[in-house]
């Protein structure tokens, strides 16, 4: 796959000179602030981690992750939207599937960086509150990795939408609009697992942190839904993009 590696390095270069990096630490920083202010007056022992995670993760997974996923999806297409960029890129010897795959991988890597920073923020908050040695690393890792996976269907969907509309702002606006009802949607265990905007929150805060509505679903069924919607959205984006008239 030398062709794909070259494409990836080109995409990386376009992005690395931009300011999109500044968005990566925003949500973890806010989460850290919230985490530092949590009060543990009446709780102790192993109850502290779920409270900390739900406090720090609600805003992060419920709003920031889906919105950031949409921003990144729009951002990786941004340079192509302006003045014939798609024409130039696609008249180079590249496959269209490769182009989508490279852009998706870039989004996934940036989201992974956000998640790592978030995990670090949880650790720092636990240090502040003095229970760092008791931090359940396994649970934290699965929450962080789970919500990263939960972002990928949305990333594939938003990337498809970003190639559909030659606009930076329109897919973003739709994305924000559909992120806002997350809290309501999450109450329904029937709809929420299929709602791409709620998936990051469900996969992060399920179980101990929150246990109402769709948060109480078993992780296996959640992951199957996430994987299934990822496959569907990615195939739809690929089919559309491969046929698109540029």
């Amino acid at each position: 796959m030398p062709g794909f590696r070259r494409l990836l390095s080109s995409e990386w270069m376009k992005l690395s000179k931009s300011r999109v990096w500044l968005l990566v630490p925003v949500s973890p920083a806010i989460a850290l602030l919230i985490g530092a202010l949590v009060s543990f007056d009446s709780v102790s022992g192993s109850d502290r981690y779920p409270i900390l995670l739900s406090a720090m993760g609600q805003f992060h997974a419920m709003f920031f992750l889906p919105i950031l996923t949409g921003i990144l999806a729009a951002f990786v297409c941004r340079y192509e939207h302006g003045s014939g960029g798609w024409k130039q890129l696609l008249s180079l010897p590249v496959s269209r599937t490769g182009v989508i795959a490279a852009k998706l991988l870039i989004i996934a890597v940036l989201l992974a960086a956000v998640q790592l920073l978030f995990a670090a923020a949880v650790y720092v908050a636990s240090v502040i509150h003095g229970f760092a040695p008791e931090l359940p690393w396994g649970a934290l890792a699965s929450a962080v990795a789970g919500s990263w996976l939960g972002c990928l269907p949305l990333a594939a969907l938003q990337l498809g939408v970003s190639t559909l509309w030659s606009s930076f702002a329109a897919p973003l606006a739709v994305n924000v609009m559909l992120t806002l009802p997350n809290m309501l949607v999450a109450n329904s265990e029937k709809i929420a697992p299929y709602y791409p905007w709620a998936q990051p929150a469900l996969t992060m805060l399920r179980g101990d942190a929150l246990d109402f509505g769709a948060f109480a679903l078993p992780i296996e069924s959640l992951l199957i839904t996430v994987l299934g919607s990822f496959v569907i959205f990615l195939s739809a984006s690929l089919v559309y993009f491969n046929r698109k008239e540029i």
């Binding site: 080109s10 270069m13 376009k14 003045s83 960029g85 180079l92």
Partner: peptide, 26 residues
């Protein structure tokens, strides 16, 4: 090829614009 309007990445320099393409065509 150059189709209609030239495409470029405004935040990059000319060298960097060409580098982004060079990485693809090797």
């Amino acid at each position: 090829s150059l189709v209609e309007y030239p495409s470029y990445y405004g935040h990059l320099t000319a060298t960097e614009n060409l580098e982004a393409i060079r990485r693809i065509i090797d």
